[in-house]
Amino acid sequence: MSTVLIADDEPNIVISLEYLMQREGHEVLVARDGDEALAMIAEHRPDLVLLDVMMPGRSGFEVLKAVRGNDDMAATRILMLTARGRDTDRTKGEALGADGYVVKPFSTRELAEQVREMLGEN
């Protein structure tokens, strides 16, 4: 069973994402800000992270960079899930090494499919 970490400070989306991932059969962890997210990645080594960008503490980009900069954690799959939809943000995310970039609002069905694909590559 794979572990999925949901990093987002908005409870209104976490509730739906949590349910979605559990229904998919993954073990779900939740982080409410950037620092917590990084700590949890280091400790639990999830297979996939659903990473928001606008979070208190470190931003999603900083977390992404830290993860990719650390050899131990570098292989973690990261899917950015954010309201920041400008093309510059997408470019930055991809340049920093995100495996996917989904702009809110999104379709839960499509998200589930994308998660399945990313984990299936394992």
Binding site: F61, K65, G69, T88, D89, T91, K92, A95, L96
Partner: peptide, 12 residues
């Protein structure tokens, strides 16, 4: 500038 910036490193 309507742009963005970031830091990349290859092999540290």
């Amino acid at each position: 500038h309507g742009g963005t910036c970031w830091h990349e490193s290859a092999n540290g």
